[in-house]
């Protein structure tokens, strides 16, 4: 029998076995699950044997040992250390001397800490902050009437959002800014005038809308994550705005996750109907 046909039947049998869990936990599902667990472990065992231990250890260490027997020192002889530490890691399987595995573990932990300290600081902190702090206005070389209208409406909307946010922070129910109402009104009026002037000014100078929104979202989001200070007053208001951005982010991520899982499910149903049963072409 053609090995491809056998493969399709085995794949269909195991696919249905996993799907049978939707009814309830049953031996067919457990059988399929056990195969998956065993195959996954075996897959990584074989993959790492060739891709890591053979490619990185054996191909470097073996010639270095041969050179040593010929009276020459090869720099790659230092790979002996990795081999010894790897063996020490496996000694975790022998409980009385399992503590020896802490030595290789500390190499992994120390190396990862040193690597992540720099990489995360450079990539995820400094570069992200750099991308967030952008010029507030842009000067497009050529812009048509329709686009100008869109930009102006957009600018007005941004100022409106800023004013509403400020109003929420000053007068909202969760606001605990301890200032007299006239003072709050004074600040709000200053903001209103500033926004009005900004809108007027922006008629000839288009704002970098997305940049401003992103800056506001990142700033407020970071304030939400700062737990060393109580979330009250201006700080609390900004943290609340931060949660709005975070909720939109989680919603978008959730939507994407739903779509990717649905896509996988459609792929499996497609396999069953097209490749296995051949009822759909």
């Amino acid at each position: 029998m053609d090995s491809n046909i056998v493969g399709v039947w085995i794949a269909a049998f195991l696919t249905l076995g996993i799907m049978s869990f939707l009814y309830k936990d049953n031996p067919w599902y457990k059988f399929s699950e056990a195969i998956f667990v065993g195959l996954s472990a075996g897959y990584w065992f074989a993959s790492l044997f060739w891709q890591s231990l053979h490619a990185k250890f054996w191909t470097n260490w073996s010639p270095a040992v041969q050179s040593l027997f010929q009276g020459q020192f090869d720099y790659n002889l230092l790979y002996t250390g990795a081999g010894i530490l790897g063996l020490m890691m496996l000694l975790r399987l022998v409980p009385p001397i399992g503590w020896i595995s802490r030595w290789p573990l500390s190499v992994v932990v120390g190396g990862t800490a040193g690597l992540y300290l720099i990489n995360y600081l450079v990539s995820n902190a400094i570069r992200q902050i750099g991308s967030t702090i952008q010029p507030a206005v842009t000067f497009p070389e050529s812009i048509g009437w329709v686009q100008s209208g869109g930009v102006i409406i957009g600018n007005v909307l941004v100022f409106a959002v800023l004013l509403v946010s400020l109003g929420f922070i000053l007068f909202g129910r969760s606001s605990t800014i301890d200032l007299p109402t006239p003072t709050k009104l004074f600040f709000f009026l200053i903001a209103l005038v500033a926004c009005g002037l900004g809108t007027f000014y922006s008629l000839s100078m288009p704002l970098n809308l997305t940049g401003l929104i992103i800056f506001m979202g990142v700033f407020c989001g970071l304030i939400y994550f700062f737990f060393s200070k109580e979330h009250t007053g201006f700080f609390g208001g900004a943290a609340t705005v931060g949660t709005w951005f975070l909720m939109v982010t989680f919603g978008a991520s959730f939507g994407y996750t739903v779509m990717s899982r649905m896509s996988l499910l459609i792929g499996r149903i497609d396999f069953l109907l097209v490749e296995w049963l051949k009822v759909v072409k």
Partner: peptide, 28 residues
Amino acid sequence: MQVLNTAGQRAILIGIALGTVSTSLRII
């Protein structure tokens, strides 16, 4: 995806980065 999600993701990424840096320092 490109504006609101980017803002939230950046806040999370920067928070994770600062946490990772402080934990790494503590480990070293």
